[in-house]
Design a protein around this nucleic acid. Structure first.
Length: 595
RNA sequence: GGUUCCGUAGCUCAACUGGAUAGAGCAAUUGCCUUCUAAGCAAUAGGUUAUGCGUUCGAGUCGCAUCGGAAUCACCA
């Protein structure tokens, strides 16, 4: 039981005894005491004034007296206005460090046996071009949230849904067929996804050219856009694909396999894996049973033109087509179908979709249909983890204007910058292999942290230059703190086995502050899991590293002659390094022992 | 135009979900490397939380309105 839980319980009892009133744990607001005040936990007593019928100060004092009586670990309290500041005995804090330092399950819950898993879908790339900055945010969020949920005691199944069919891939295919001269990843030395992406751009170039030619010969622009020969060829190819034409399918498989090799390399660099990959070519026909069921239940209806629709106007949305008049599926149809398929396959307790906020409307419709209109219990468990766009100082990313930041290029740049920085600092005692490894850890860490520290739902500004600057609220700062602690511990010969500490050691402010931060870690993980928010972990870790640096500066460990004090500080250091490593892991970021 | 999201220091972001005097970093100025890694620490300066009402003991946070920005409103995915 944590201090908070014990205090909350004691407060409820005290109020019962003092005022003969019953309050729920919800109305007991307990928070961390602000730095400028004395104490560890602060109880806000305003909600209890109606019961006590006296002034805030008096109410606080009365409750404080009771707590002092009931809770042996409470040393003292003070009252400022309606705030009751409670101090915990120093030996309790030292006991906490003694007990948890070196506990490799600290802040980690274990999934209950047989519990339903959480399903999370993320990444979901198209196979016509390489991953870009927007995907990076998606991938990092999905990966990090998975790790956080796992730490919070969930079994997590990570799935990827690859959009491998449709007109976009046919565009790349037709361009490659016409202008590719048989170029392959091997012959060109290009990564497969980049090669296919190149032909997607190539398609656009020829398409634009053809439109110009047509308009110059007198055709309207609108018509030219529809009649450009290369587009007609791509559309014809899509029809052939749907008919199962062997030649088209073979080409499709070949080019897709290039792309998958490329994606695989990118995912590997990012440190991302999936438990299962779905392909839209297998799922795009799903969903028709649901449409049928909806029709039977009279939730959907057949429009006069033959299409199946649902009217969502009374829920503030629009009329939505679910099946085309020719009987084929639209996007929402297959998403309904895949959701059902996945539910039947895994029976998850929750289904999370990491998808950009441009699809908010789509997911509102999906949740409404499955969770309310068709009234599936599992439909209510769908959560759209929506995230904002990544903007650049130069403006928006537009593939046509060549302002897209490619994921592979970006990662390579970050690693190169990290290497250069290390070299500039004159750190020469690394072998070339160690230096390369370090550059990767620091460069990728900087990128991941820069993106994850921002609240997912907000649009964010990605400034390449700033992200490469390794100062401030960044991964390298945290990694550096960790590395310094590790080397300190090594010099001091500290090992976790002798973590049993003298509880009578005097506890100074810097020590207490850092212990207090360490103590907050499990609650932070819990909250981050509840809100799917890696940003909370990131900002917590930064806070921890910053507190440690101050502590490090103010409490010279190696020169400390009092052995008990020195031992405590070493234990705090070891504990801090451990929590840093663990919480950075939740962000998918490694921390080096040396840098 | 309808719907949803956002608006906090010059810039990039926080603020434990309604709590105390709104905090960090960058950029600027100033100190600190014969003492554990200076990728660091300390200090100064920078704010009417877009604006205006309202709700209550208490509002950056909740409600309404206005102004700005973004996304979306396909028988595309």
């Amino acid at each position: 039981m944590t201090f908070e839980e014990k205090i909350t319980q004691a407060v409820i009892e005290s109020i019962k005894e003092l005022y003969d009133s019953t309050v729920g744990a919800e109305s007991v607001t307990l928070q961390k005491t602000k730095k400028e005040f004395e104490g560890d936990f602060t109880l806000v007593v305003f909600p209890f004034l109606k019961m006590s019928r006296c002034k805030p100060e008096d109410t606080a004092r009365q409750i404080g007296e009771k707590l002092l009586e009931k809770l042996p670990f409470v040393q003292d309290f003070n009252v400022i206005k309606g705030f009751l500041n409670i101090s915990v005995r120093p030996e309790e804090w030292i006991g906490f460090v003694s007990q948890e330092c070196g506990n490799d399950r600290y802040g980690v819950k274990t999934a209950p046996e047989g519990a339903a898993p959480v399903l999370i879908e993320f990444s979901s790339p198209n196979t016509n071009k390489p991953l870009h900055l927007g995907h990076v945010r998606n991938n990092l969020l999905g990966d990090s949230v998975s790790r956080i949920l796992e730490a919070d005691g969930n079994r997590v199944i990570k799935v990827n849904l690859v959009n491998d069919r449709g007109i976009h891939i046919c565009k790349s295919m037709i361009a490659w067929q016409k202008y590719g001269n048989g170029e392959t990843p091997e012959s060109s030395g290009m990564k497969g996804d980049h090669l296919v992406g190149k032909y997607y751009v190539e398609f656009d170039k020829h398409y634009k050219e053809e439109i110009r030619t047509l308009t110059e010969s007198g055709m309207s622009e609108e018509e030219a856009e529809k009649k450009a020969p290369i587009l007609l060829e791509a559309q014809a190819m899509l029809r052939k694909w749907e008919e199962g034409d062997t030649e088209v399918r073979t080409l499709w498989e070949k080019m897709n396999s290039w792309v998958y090799d490329g994606f695989e390399a990118t995912y590997r660099t990012m440190g991302i894996t999936f438990d299962k990959t779905y392909y839209e070519s297998n799922t795009y026909l799903l969903g028709k049973e649901i449409v049928k069921e909806g029709l039977d239940k009279k939730v959907f209806y057949r429009h006069t033109d033959g299409s199946v629709r649902i009217d969502l106007r009374e829920d503030g949305l629009d009329e939505k087509v679910l099946l085309r008049s020719d009987g084929t599926s639209v996007y929402i149809t297959q998403d309904l179908g895949t959701a059902l398929t996945r539910y039947n396959e895994f029976h998850p307790s929750r289904m999370i979709y990491v998808v950009g906020n441009e699809q908010n409307y789509h997911f509102d419709v999906l949740k409404l249909i499955l969770g309310k209109k068709l009234d599936y219990d599992w439909g209510k468990s769908i959560h759209h983890l929506s995230y904002g766009m990544v903007e650049l100082p130069s403006g928006k990313m537009k593939s046509r204007e060549g302002t897209v930041v490619d994921a592979d290029d970006l990662m390579a740049d970050m690693i190169a910058m990290a290497a250069e920085n290390t070299a500039q600092m004159g750190k020469t005692d690394f072998t070339p292999e160690e230096a390369a490894k370090l550059a990767e850890t620091v460069g990728l860490g900087a990128l991941k942290y820069f993106i994850l520290k921002v609240d997912p739902k907000k649009n964010m500004m990605f400034n390449p230059n700033e992200s490469i600057d390794l100062n401030g609220n960044t991964a390298p700062f945290i990694q550096y703190t960790h590395a310094r602690i590790r080397s300190l511990l090594q010099k001091a010969g500290f090992s976790l086995e002798n973590g049993t500490l003298d509880s009578n050691t005097v506890l100074g402010d810097p020590e207490k502050e850092i212990i207090r931060t360490l103590y907050d870690y499990p609650a932070c993980v819990e909250q981050a899991a509840a809100e799917f928010s890696p940003a909370q972990i990131a900002n917590y870790t930064y806070e921890l590293a910053k507190n440690y640096n101050r502590f490090y500066q103010e409490c010279p460990i190696m020169r400390e002659t009092d052995t008990a004090k020195r031992q405590l500080r070493l234990a705090i250091s070891a504990f801090t390094a451990d929590v840093i490593r663990r919480s950075m892991k939740l962000l998918g970021i490694n921390v080096p022992d040396r840098m």
